[in-house]
Simulated scan of single mutants.
Amino acid sequence: MDVLRLLDEIEDILEESSTIPFAGKLLVDKEDILDVIKEIRIKLPDEIKQAEWIKEERQRILAEAQNEADTMIEEVKVHMEEMIDEEEITKKAKERAEEIIGKAQVNAKEIRLGAREYADELLKEVQEKLNFVIDTIDKNRDELKGF
């Protein structure tokens, strides 16, 4: 920084100045000191502007980094919610599938039982008709024997 160099220059001027004995005072060239102060006044606004720019740039970078971090956090939240939703959908689909399979198994069992009962009824009717036919055949044979 030029301002620090100029302050060092003032310090050098003061150190190189003659001292007044027993007074603890210095004899300095007023023009030298005023020239350095004038340069400081000229340089100071530029350096202040540069420092302000650095400060603003730092703030902008920090704000940008915070925005990026917030965006990333939000994206992670959305992704997690999507994954949770997908898991819920999968879970509900599995539950629904199990429910459908259960109903299908109950229906299949009812159909098997119904088919067995129907087949048993048909066989019973056939058996009764066959018994009737056998009885009729036996009677007819008995009649034939009686002749």
Rank of each mutant, 00 (worst) to 15 (best):
67 N>P: 04
44 L>E: 06
72 M>G: 01
41 R>F: 12
36 V>F: 02
73 I>F: 10
51 A>E: 13
81 E>Y: 03
70 D>T: 10
82 E>T: 14
36 V>A: 00
44 L>D: 06
85 D>M: 10
76 V>P: 07
42 I>G: 01
36 V>P: 00
42 I>K: 02
70 D>V: 11
33 I>V: 14
57 E>W: 07
65 A>D: 06
29 D>C: 08
39 E>A: 13
22 F>I: 11
74 E>L: 13
41 R>A: 09
51 A>S: 11
52 E>L: 14
20 I>Q: 03
42 I>T: 01
57 E>R: 12
32 D>K: 08
43 K>I: 06
86 E>N: 07
60 R>G: 02
45 P>V: 03
31 E>S: 02
33 I>C: 04
35 D>C: 05
54 I>C: 10
21 P>N: 10
51 A>Q: 09
77 K>M: 08
37 I>M: 08
88 E>W: 04
88 E>D: 07
73 I>Y: 07
79 H>I: 08
58 R>A: 12
55 K>M: 11
46 D>N: 11
84 I>W: 03
85 D>K: 14
88 E>T: 09
32 D>Y: 01
40 I>P: 00
54 I>R: 13
33 I>S: 01
60 R>Y: 06
23 A>P: 02
69 A>M: 06
61 I>H: 07
63 A>D: 06
59 Q>S: 14
47 E>S: 01
44 L>W: 06
71 T>P: 01
80 M>K: 15
45 P>E: 00
81 E>A: 11
56 E>D: 07
33 I>N: 02
79 H>K: 15
51 A>K: 13
41 R>K: 15
51 A>W: 08
71 T>H: 12
84 I>S: 03
58 R>M: 14
46 D>R: 08
32 D>F: 05
80 M>S: 14
58 R>C: 09
78 V>L: 14
26 L>T: 11
32 D>G: 04
27 L>Y: 04
21 P>R: 12
31 E>K: 07
35 D>P: 02
80 M>D: 13
44 L>I: 08
73 I>S: 10
70 D>S: 12
22 F>T: 03
45 P>F: 05
41 R>T: 09
45 P>W: 04
63 A>F: 03
61 I>E: 11
70 D>M: 15
48 I>G: 03
75 E>M: 09
36 V>K: 03
31 E>V: 05
60 R>H: 03
43 K>N: 10
45 P>R: 07
38 K>A: 10
73 I>T: 09
82 E>C: 10
55 K>R: 03
56 E>F: 05
20 I>V: 05
36 V>Q: 00
83 M>S: 09
47 E>W: 01
80 M>I: 15
50 Q>K: 15
73 I>V: 10
89 I>F: 13
88 E>C: 06
80 M>E: 15
83 M>R: 11
84 I>H: 05
81 E>H: 07
66 Q>K: 04
31 E>H: 01
27 L>W: 04
72 M>T: 07
53 W>Q: 06
79 H>T: 09
49 K>V: 12
26 L>E: 03
69 A>D: 00
50 Q>Y: 12
77 K>G: 00
66 Q>E: 09
88 E>I: 11
88 E>R: 10
47 E>F: 02
77 K>E: 07
66 Q>H: 11
62 L>M: 05
87 E>I: 03
31 E>I: 00
42 I>Y: 06
22 F>A: 10
34 L>D: 13
73 I>E: 13
33 I>T: 00
66 Q>W: 00
58 R>D: 13
49 K>G: 14
38 K>E: 14
51 A>F: 12
84 I>D: 04
